[in-house]
Computed example of a mutant assay.
Amino acid sequence: MNETSLYAPVKLFLEGLGFAVKGEIGGCDMVGLRQGEPPVVVICELKLQFNLELVLQGVDRAAASDEVWLAARMSARGKGRESDARFRNLCRRLGFGLLGVTARDQVEVLLSPAALPPRKDPRRRSRLVDEHQRRRGDPAAGGSTRKPIMTAYRQEALACAAAMTEGPRRPRDLKPTMPNVVKILRRNVYGWFVRADHGVYDITDSGRAALLQWPQSTEGKTE
């Protein structure tokens, strides 16, 4: 069992509060946005048990969010940190909410986040909002640590690669549906593209392999 086992029930809980939730954005296990101008940003970090590392992650995330939630499995005998008054008081002073996930994946609110005004990091917050809004669907379960994260950039690069499976293409032909195509082709972060001619690009073998590795990630991207 790992942190990703907590993702689905906690996501469902946060969606019930009106947030659109996606996993693994900007190093955060979960980021939720609620409609507004600017949107309300909530960050939730996941651990299999409540511990100091989870609190420290929350401290790091506070400047980029309006609310921070910490979620972990409830201990089998009720003797974990969630029952420790000192732990709860620490989180209360920091303004963090605590969510306990039972063995049956029920989410219990152990502590609601306080409306404290944390020091904001506008640039970091903006990056989280941009990545959340650009990412298609929710392809990465929060808590993932051992496999590449399906970021918005990777999704866009895969869409470019898919568009070239039938032959070389010009960036200007792809730009109407892929606004970032020029930047993606020039940077070529993953080595998926090669210049076939002046102003014309083709897909490499590694690009074709990537399309086989993530076959669902290009559906509906080139319409």
Score class of each variant (00 low, 15 high):
I149C: 03
R119Q: 13
R172Y: 14
K183M: 06
G199R: 09
L174D: 01
V182N: 15
A161P: 02
L98Q: 02
D205T: 13
R136N: 05
V129T: 07
V194D: 08
G143E: 04
R136Y: 11
Y190L: 12
D130V: 09
I149G: 06
H198E: 14
E108M: 09
K147T: 10
R136K: 13
Q155W: 08
R119N: 11
E156V: 00
N188C: 01
V189A: 15
P139N: 05
V200D: 05
A140K: 01
R134M: 03
A162R: 11
R134D: 10
D130K: 10
K120A: 14
P113T: 06
V107P: 10
W192A: 09
F193E: 06
P179M: 10
R172N: 13
P168M: 07
I203A: 01
P179H: 12
L110N: 05
V200F: 04
A103C: 02
Y201M: 07
D130C: 04
G199H: 09
R123N: 04
R136T: 07
V101N: 11
L111W: 07
R154K: 15
R135A: 05
R146D: 14
V200E: 12
D173K: 09
S112M: 14
A157L: 11
L98R: 01
W192Y: 14
A152D: 08
Q155E: 13
